[in-house]
Design a protein around this nucleic acid. Structure first.
Lengths: 333, 333
DNA sequence: CTGAAAGCGCTTACAG
DNA sequence: CTGAAAGCGCTTACAG
């Protein structure tokens, strides 16, 4: 037979006090005498009482949860970020809810950004509509929604592109190409713009023929390789900066299959520094994003927002770093 | 000025009906007349009313959430699984909560498996204490907790090991080694046992010197490579079956750095079929686990449990598959 | 079909 | 320091 969960009134009855006193003894011990505290503690133990969080949340007009809106949960890129978020939210007493924005229909999405579902949002998808989110406190992380007023935690994507380009130019490359992320994506746009700018500083240009349109995924890196392979070896890029490591892997894999070598035939710089790419052949030179830190700081910013502190001024920009490995080599025409 | 959220009573007043009628019109439309329905709908629109889920949940004595207990959120292995879970839970109206069991202290962990926090649990960590979970409906996925009575969704790890070993034996290998996962892990144990069994069927054995103790991570694969490298080339394994693709990557990377080639010098079979390893050099032969399906089916089983259906009999075993790529080659001593 | 009222299980301002 | 009571915002058995 299933006994119903004990409620606070069960504890009160057993302890011979009011429910108010039990509540105080539990959540504000200093408000009751040591003796009361002990009596209540004994009654709690005897009944096996555990606080009903839903009831407390209703009373406090809060949900106790924070929702992370992830563009694609299946993408390993987000694991570290979620881990960083969870590491902050858990100890702070918040539940971490996650939802995949790509696989949810707009209706569902609207229902997600709902004050009764989560106390706050961590938005990792820059393609969402600002209006649908406006009802809940939120911070943006990694990506951002143009026009949306909210604290942002991100990297300087243009500066990152400059690191990559400067490195390649320093190695003697003059024909440098770029493999983009999804066309509309804010990161893609920033990284492409940064590539243009950095090349310009060196008196170089990025012709359309050296721009390969990808989507951050493996397949599109492979596709970029195929496009590059059919271009004139004398005029095609001698080096490629890719907007993600995954695409770089796809590209290198395809090049290998076609009998070409990286970096001998093509220098490659990736983006993200996902764990595996230090161990592939060749180990990939890339731009490191502090993914766990991005998650951690986004969560901390949101907690500050929820506790009523003033929203931080300006964006929170985290440093990136060029990690030199073996996928780039000097070049002389 | 901040206007409080409208409540159901605001809608009722405007519509000139009782709160009960509003509630019915919203969650059980067929219980009210079409006219009432229209009046209520208009009042909802006019007030901008949205249901407070916490209140409804309290009333229904449920939380509306399902908690996934993940051993390590930072591990990309779980992204696809979470994605599979989210794909089922979202449409069913449940929130997906996630928590990292490794970074949570036992106290916190106990508080997680709390009926007032989640209606059900999807347990992905086989190292948790059965007692701490017993209070909430749950299913186990991938890993399992010995002694815990709960529906399990998993693969046949022994059969998977047999696929790998049969393949290697078929190529002529006689000295076959195994790189394990963490010693206490149920998957490690099953895969090691499966390796023993499969070798025995071919009249072969797995000497201690051919067992390398890893932890599923990249570094430990690298470490296994170092151990193998210092063993006598004439007696050390000519082929290795590893309990994870990550370890296989770490191992191959280290072998390359030492000037050895896979599969020329060593045949390698991994486990999991994570996306990237199809694109490394050499593309890895491995055992494919249907990760998204594992998550999906675990979520479906839990929903069935929560809806009061009888728990399914026995474990739900999903098929694995040997994916042949280029990291294994014939061998003749 | 609809309404009045009780109740889900807490917390807290108020009074003593 | 403690208690009685109201209330967080819903839903539903009961009555009409």
């Amino acid at each position: 037979m299933v006994r119903a969960r004990p409620r606070i009134s069960d504890v009160a009855r057993l302890a011979g006090v009011s429910t108010a006193t039990v509540s105080r003894a539990l959540s504000n011990p200093s408000m009751v005498t040591a003796e009361t505290r002990a009596t209540v503690a004994a009654a709690v133990k005897a009944t096996g009482y555990r606080l009903n969080l839903t009831a407390r949340n209703l009373r406090h007009s809060r949900t106790g949860g924070v929702l992370a809106l992830v563009p694609n949960l299946a993408n390993p890129f987000f694991s570290q970020i979620l881990s960083g978020i969870a590491g902050v939210l858990g100890p702070a007493g918040y539940n971490l809810l996650v939802a995949d924005t790509r696989t949810s229909d707009p209706e569902t999405l609207l229902a997600y950004a709902e004050p009764s579902r989560a106390d706050g949002l961590i938005v990792l998808d820059g393609s969402l509509a600002a209006e649908s989110l406006a009802r809940v406190p939120l911070v943006e992380a990694c990506e951002w929604i143009p026009g949306l007023q909210a604290p942002r935690v991100k990297i300087d994507n243009r500066a990152a592109a400059k690191l990559a380009i400067d490195h390649l130019v320093g190695l003697g490359h003059r024909r440098i190409g770029h493999v983009t992320g999804p066309t509309q994506n804010v990161l893609s746009i920033a990284r492409l713009a940064g590539t243009h700018e950095a090349l310009a500083e060196h008196g170089l240009t990025l012709p359309d023929s050296a721009i390969y349109h990808g989507d951050f995924g493996l397949q599109s890196g492979q596709e970029a390789a195929r496009q590059w392979l059919v271009q004139d070896p004398n005029t095609r890029p001698s080096a490629l900066f890719l907007a993600s490591d995954e695409m770089a892997c796809g590209l290198i894999g395809e090049l290998h299959r076609q009998g070409l070598q990286v970096p001998r035939d093509l220098s490659v710089v990736g983006f993200d520094d996902i764990e595996l790419i230090a161990h592939i052949a060749p180990p990939l030179t890339t731009i490191r994003q502090p993914r766990a830190d991005l998650g951690r700081i986004a969560a901390e910013s949101l907690l500050r927002l929820l506790s009523g502190e003033a929203a931080p001024e300006g964006d929170h920009i985290l440093p990136v770093e060029l990690v030199l490995r073996d996928s780039t080599a000097p070049w002389a025409d």
